[in-house]
């Protein structure tokens, strides 16, 4: 619409050979003459579709990468919770000091045995999942007796609300961090791995 108005303005200012302004007889000729004399406006649109296609493809690739990351992260998180829980259970079961229980009627944990079993469990779970041990770190706390113990600020990121971990039974806490591939971060060149943080605990009670 703007271009048309522009053309009419040019035509309006043109004076025809018949000395009449905007005469019907020679208007087309006049327009042709004027346009032939005007410098051409470069309104090139070729390649526009390619630019749009590139932009749309880029956005779609980013959306696809974000979706993959979200699926992968959620899946790894669910698995990691179960792996940490299984490790804590195995540690509590293997570390239960039966001789002390039979002697005193109170439960106690053998820290070394429990810790060794938890580490073995974590390594086995990681291996079964196909995750290299270099992409996981863990922090294991074993409270061997029923004494009340509070771990200040631990686990660091195991729950939504940062809190302390308090136990009043022989207990095991397993804090596990696992790296999961981040396609979007890799594409953007920021970070190729996203980290999942989970915590699980297990206690011996009568």
């Amino acid at each position: 619409m703007a271009v048309r108005n522009f053309r009419f303005e040019i035509a309006d200012t043109y004076t025809c050979v018949c000395a009449q302004r905007r005469c019907k007889c020679c208007r087309l000729d006049a327009l042709r003459t004027v346009f032939n004399q005007q410098p051409k406006i470069n309104n090139q649109q070729s390649g526009q579709a390619s630019v749009w296609a590139m932009l749309v493809l880029l956005v779609l690739v980013m959306v696809g990468a974000a979706l993959l990351d979200a699926y992968q992260w959620a899946s790894t998180r669910v698995w990691a919770y179960h792996a940490a829980e299984a490790a804590a259970e195995r540690g509590a079961t293997a570390g239960a000091d039966w001789s002390h229980f039979q002697y005193s009627g109170e439960w106690q944990l053998n820290s070394a045995v429990a810790r060794s079993e938890i580490e073995a469990a974590l390594r086995e779970e990681l291996s079964a999942r196909g995750i290299d041990a270099s992409h996981a770190t863990w922090d294991i706390r074993v409270h061997a007796t029923s004494a009340v113990v509070t771990e200040q600020g631990w686990p660091p990121k195991g729950s939504l609300w940062a809190s302390d971990w308090t136990t009043d039974h022989p207990s095991i806490g397993v804090y596990l961090e696992v790296d999961t591939p981040a396609f979007l971060g890799g594409l953007a060149g920021i970070e190729q791995w996203a980290r999942v943080h989970v915590f699980a605990s297990s206690s011996l009670v009568r």
Partner: peptide
């Protein structure tokens, strides 16, 4: 066309992950 292909692909991947997650639980 491209959007449909990407959407269908995303849905299929989501289906795979949903099955895996349900199996995990």
């Amino acid at each position: 066309l491209i959007l449909t292909l990407v959407s269908l692909g995303a849905f299929e991947i989501a289906r795979g992950y949903a099955v895996k997650q349900a199996m995990d639980v």
